[in-house]
Each structure stands twice: as structure tokens, then as C-alpha cells.
Computed example of a mutant assay.
Amino acid sequence: MAFYALFGMACVLRVTVQGYPSAAGSASCLDLTPQHGAGAQGSSSPYTLWVDTTSVKQGGMVTVTLNATAAGTTFKGFLVQARCTKCSTADTAIVPGTFAKYTASDANIITMECENEAMNSMTHTNNDVKTSATFTWTAPADWNVAEGIKFRATVVQVKVTWWADVMSDEISVTASSTSPVYPVTALVVAGFIAVSSLFP
């Protein structure tokens, strides 16, 4: 009986240390800390978050790539979010944009819901070794243009070896123009007609 009790405890402990091989857990949503039983690495991260633009309109799209930069370096898991850099709660302000796969057939990544906002995070689907992951992010159409955005990631190399605060360049958000654009010729004709109507 004692053997079965000890065996059961060992199984529970093993699962707790390994964390979530198929995806990040919801407990990691705010502080982006994996439940692996160890602290983040103190050395410089061997990973980068690359963005294809540093300026996007409200409702516009950004392509984001998580890369292993050091030779021979890989990763197994990650969690990426867009975070507000100028909000009063910048450490916990998840920008409510929408992540998506860059390649629809990519079986290594999946969107995730955090804080009851669908698809506002991107994570892994398995613990296969990876050297990169590419996805897109669409900015909310009503985002305050005064508030900047940085993509922030936690990257797990293997089990208890992970890095926090892997950051992208800051992205500025500009208001999408809703004003109609008229050709110069059309404006000249419209002006001529308006003036002519004054002299029958």
C-alpha cells in the first residue's frame, strides 16, 4: 500500500515539474511565468522577438517571429503577448489584439485565451525542439494611439531552463484614416461647378 502511495506522489511531482508540454497554462497569463519549479535564467536571452514593422494603424497587422539566435540553440515552449508600454499598469496590461498563425498548417503553435480575451496570446502545442516560430498579430481597431506596444515572451529551452522578458522593438499605433480621398481633378471640377452656379 505504501508503495502505491509513493508511486502516486512521484507521478504528481513529475507532472508539476514538467509543466505544460502541450501549451502554456492559464496560470502563466499575467506574469508569463511557467510552472516549472525553477526561476528564470539570469543570463542574456539566446532568443529574440522580431517584428516586420514598428508602426501600425489601428486594425493593422504585424508579423512577429520568435528566433533562437545562438548557434545550436533551440526551444520547446513559449508564451507571447502584446503588452502596453505606456499604460499605468504596463506590467499586466495585455493589449486585446488578435494573434493568428502565419502559416495555417503550422502544427507547433496555437492561439490562447488569457483574462477572458480570445486569441490575445500565442503559445506552443508540443514540446518538440524549435528554432523559430512565426505568427501575426492584428491591432485592435479602437486602440488608444498614445499607448505603445511591445511583444513580450517567455521562452522555455528545456524543462527548468527558461528566459523571461524577451522583448520586441516598440510599435507605435496610428489612427486609421476614415476621411474620403478625392482626386485633384475632381476637386477642381467641383469648385468650378460651385462658382458657375453663382452666375446664371
Rank of each mutant, 00 (worst) to 15 (best):
T53F: 02
D52H: 08
D52C: 07
W50Y: 07
T54V: 15
V56S: 04
G72D: 09
G59I: 04
K76G: 14
T48R: 10
T65P: 05
S45E: 02
A71Q: 15
V51W: 08
A68T: 02
P46T: 11
V51I: 15
L66H: 06
V51M: 12
A70P: 00
G60S: 10
T53E: 06
A71Y: 15
L66C: 09
T69S: 14
Q58R: 15
D52W: 06
W50E: 10
P46K: 12
G72T: 07
T73F: 04
K57N: 09
V62R: 00
A70L: 11
M61N: 08
S45R: 01
V51Y: 07
T73K: 13
A70Y: 04
Q58V: 07
A71R: 14
T63K: 14
N67E: 06
L49H: 02
D52L: 07
V56A: 15
N67M: 07
L49S: 02
V64E: 01
V51N: 10
P46R: 10
A68I: 02
T73D: 09
G72C: 11
S45Y: 02
S55I: 09
V64H: 01
N67P: 00
G72Q: 13
Q58A: 13
V56K: 00
S55N: 09
L66F: 10
A71P: 11
T73A: 09
T54Y: 04
V62L: 15
M61L: 09
T65Y: 05
T63C: 09
V64S: 02
T53I: 03
T65M: 09
L66D: 04
G59P: 03
F75T: 03
V64R: 01
T53D: 10
T73W: 05
V62N: 01
K76H: 13
N67V: 00
N67A: 03
S55Q: 14
G60C: 09
L49N: 02
V62W: 00
T53C: 04
A70H: 05
T53Y: 02
L49P: 01
Q58D: 10
V62P: 00
A68Y: 00
V62S: 01
A68Q: 01
F75A: 03
D52F: 06
